[in-house]
Amino acid sequence: MAQLGFNAAHRRYKRLFWPTTVLYVAVCIGGAFLINKETSPLWMTSTVAILTALPLVLMMWAILRHQAETDEYTRLRQLKAIARGAVITISAIWVVGSFQLWEVIPGINVFWFGPFFFLAYGLGNCWDSLTGKTV
C-alpha cells in the first residue's frame, strides 16, 4: 500500500466504507427476516453469519489501508487510536475472560467484542481532542 496523500486516501476509504456499511445493514435486516434459529438449515445460518462478518472484515481492512495511504499526521493519529482501541478491547477480554474462567459471570458472545473495539477505537480517536493534546 503506497502513500497517496490525504485526499486520495480519504476518497478510497469512503468508496469502500459506504458500500460495506450498506451491505452490513442489509445483511443484518435480511438475516433477521430470513433466519429462524430453530428451523433454518445450518447452511443458511452459516451463509448469513459469513455475510454479516464479511463487511466488518472489509471495514477493518479499509481502516488499515487508509492509515497506510494517508498523510503522516493522520496516520500517526489513526495508529494511536487503533492502539488505544486495541489495548482497551484486549484488557476487556482479559477481565471478562477471567471472570468467565472462574465462573463468576456466564458466557458472553465473543461477537460483542467487535462493536466494543469500534467504540474503543472511536474514543481513542477523540482522546487527544478531549484531553487538549494534539500529538
Partner: peptide, 12 residues
C-alpha cells in the same frame, strides 16, 4: 489542499 494533508495536520 495544496500539501495534500488534512487541515488538522496544518493546524498541528
Amino acid at each position: 489542499e495544496r500539501l495534500d494533508v488534512s487541515r488538522q495536520s496544518v493546524n498541528a
